[in-house]
Structure formats: structure tokens, C-alpha cells
């Protein structure tokens, strides 16, 4: 997603997030919702789920961790080392646990003094749709498959900003696996639905070609490929905040996870919605009073 420059345009409201009822920002890049902001969160996700339902997408709920071995098939660690977050546990040996307890578990800066840590073989979900390709690996699809999930995703960043750039955030995705034509038709239909919705409610969104946030992009052949053959189109609010995207993966995941359709590697594509960023767009554009929010159907 795009870098957020943090400056609302003159037409948008500037909000003191510390004073917004029902919302709490955590400096470690996370948000807590209750009251009206939570209601908005739920209504938005219901809307995304309704769009998923219109495409016959079956809902899934996945766990938080993904085996590192699975993500390695996508060359994830070389592509996004700056974003990845690992679940860490202590080395379970009695001596190590005793050393941890006897020492100061936390230093003055609030950093844990782990002693030795256990081997790490998992990753906290970085993108919701990865779960599907792992789930469906080795399958031969007799027809296109439409699925959806909402996951808490984790991406380490060098700075955070309320609702716009978070370490952990909610991502709803609607995914299609099929032939190239089936996936393209799904993405075109999904984009038309979302475009129509923005028009109906008057939310200023521009669609812009984008690339994934690769590590050292100038040296990344994947980045170069995405520049030469754009496969990601973002829904950009206010000129600088991507609140969602439409992504054509070609047959990248089908090949990596041996999913086939019509005798060849399956193609895939997804429509992704960053729930917190949608909330940011709604609150800054329509105001914090829920009476001013558009009807979400």
C-alpha cells in the first residue's frame, strides 16, 4: 500500500484521535474500537461481506499464524523482510526459563530480555489471502472458486499513524481462483461494484496503478515486473491513502501451491479492503457524527 503522507487535504476534517469517543490509538501501531467507531467497523465489514456474497464467495476464518515454510515458497522473506513479524517464544529448557525469571524480564526501555528464544517456524499473517492458496494447495479446480476472509494482518513499519498505518490491522479480501478469463471477469465486476459505491456515497477515490512494497525495490526483479506489467490497482483516498486494491496475481500462487484449473496452473486475483483505512476515510470525509455517515448497503 502507498506511503501515507499524513496531511489531510483542506476539504477533509482534521481529527484529534485522542478525543474521539469509542476510539483509542496505541503507539505500537494498533487501534481499539467501541461505540460508534466499532459500529462503523462492523457495518463496513458487513458491506464487504455482502459484495463477497454477490459473487458467491464462501466465508472462511483462519488462524493467526502461517508456517514460515509455506511463505518461503513465495520468496516472501526476501521480498518483504522489513514487514514480517514473527511469534517468538522462550527456549523451553528449564535452565533458560529459570535464567529469564531470575534476570530482569523487562529493561528500562520496555524491551524484553528473552535469554534464549525457541526456533521460529511461523509468521503472523501478513496478508489475508495467503491462507487460501495454502489451504487449496494440490487441488484441481473443476470450476472457479470464490472465497472471502477477514484477517488481522501484521506488517512492521518504521512509523505508525492512527487508522492509516498500523502494525496490526484488519484486511477483508474477496478472492477468485480460476482461469485467467474467470479471474479477470471477477476483478472487473468487483471493481465496478466498488466504483459504483464510491460514486453513490460521494467518497473521493482515485484508482491508481501501484506496486507491492518490496524490499530494496531498485534491486527487485518482482518490483520491476510489476512496474512493467501493473497487476495492482489501488483505491486511493485524498491522493495519498490506499484504502483497498484490486490485484491480479496471474498464475503465481497457482504455480507455487500446485493449484490447477482447466489443466493448467490456476490464476488468482483478489479485491482487498483495509478496514481501518476505510474508517479513516469515512471519519475524515463524512465527519465523526454517525448521523452524517452514508447508508452502507
Amino acid at each position: 500500500m502507498k506511503t501515507f503522507l499524513g496531511k489531510p487535504m483542506a476539504s477533509e476534517r482534521s481529527i484529534d484521535w485522542n478525543l474521539l469517543p469509542g476510539y483509542r490509538w496505541h503507539e505500537n501501531g494498533q487501534s481499539t474500537f467501541s461505540g460508534a467507531p466499532l459500529k462503523l467497523y462492523q457495518k463496513l465489514d458487513r458491506l464487504f461481506l455482502q459484495w463477497a456474497g454477490e459473487r458467491g464467495a464462501a466465508e472462511h476464518r483462519f488462524p493467526t499464524f502461517i508456517p514460515a515454510r509455506e511463505l518461503d515458497r513465495l520468496d516472501y522473506f526476501r521480498s518483504f523482510p522489513h514487514l514480517v513479524t514473527f511469534p517468538v517464544t522462550l527456549d523451553p529448557s528449564k535452565d533458560n526459563l529459570a535464567a529469564f525469571v531470575r534476570g530482569a524480564p523487562l529493561d528500562d526501555a520496555g524491551h524484553l530480555q528473552l535469554a534464549a528464544s525457541a526456533p521460529i517456524a511461523d509468521v503472523l499473517t501478513p496478508a489475508a489471502c495467503y491462507h487460501f492458496y495454502i489451504q487449496f494447495q494440490d487441488e484441481r479446480l473443476a470450476q472457479p472458486r470464490y472465497v472471502t476472509t477477514r484477517a488481522t494482518c501484521f506488517r512492521r513499519e518504521d512509523h505508525y499513524a492512527p487508522l492509516q498505518r498500523q502494525w496490526s490491522f484488519s484486511m477483508r479480501e474477496i478472492v477468485c481462483l480460476g482461469t485467467a478469463d474467470e479471474v479477470k471477469a471477477f476483478l472487473a465486476g468487483g471493481r465496478a461494484t466498488v466504483e459504483g459505491f464510491f460514486k453513490k456515497i460521494g467518497l473521493p477515490i482515485e484508482w491508481q496503478n501501484a506496486t507491492d512494497p518490496f524490499f530494496e525495490p531498485a534491486r527487485s526483479s518482482k518490483y520491476l515486473m510489476q512496474k512493467l506489467d501493473p497487476v495492482k490497482i489501488e483505491m486511493v483516498f485524498n491522493g495519498d491513502l490506499a484504502i483497498g486494491s484490486v490485484n491480479f496475481h496471474r498464475n503465481y500462487f497457482g504455480e507455487a501451491f500446485r493449484i490447477t484449473r482447466a489443466g493448467a496452473d490456476a490464476y488468482s486475483g483478489c479485491i482487498a479492503f483495509g478496514v481501518e483505512r476505510w474508517i479513516f476515510a469515512f471519519l475524515t470525509h463524512f465527519g465523526t457524527d454517525e448521523a452524517g455517515w452514508p447508508v452502507l448497503t
Binding site: M225, R250, E255
Partner: peptide
């Protein structure tokens, strides 16, 4: 050739 990944990013 790109869409069908006959030529890949590598």
C-alpha cells in the same frame, strides 16, 4: 508472455 508467466520476474 508476461501474463502467462512464460517469462517470469526472475
Amino acid at each position: 508472455i508476461i501474463e502467462q508467466r512464460i517469462v517470469t520476474s526472475l
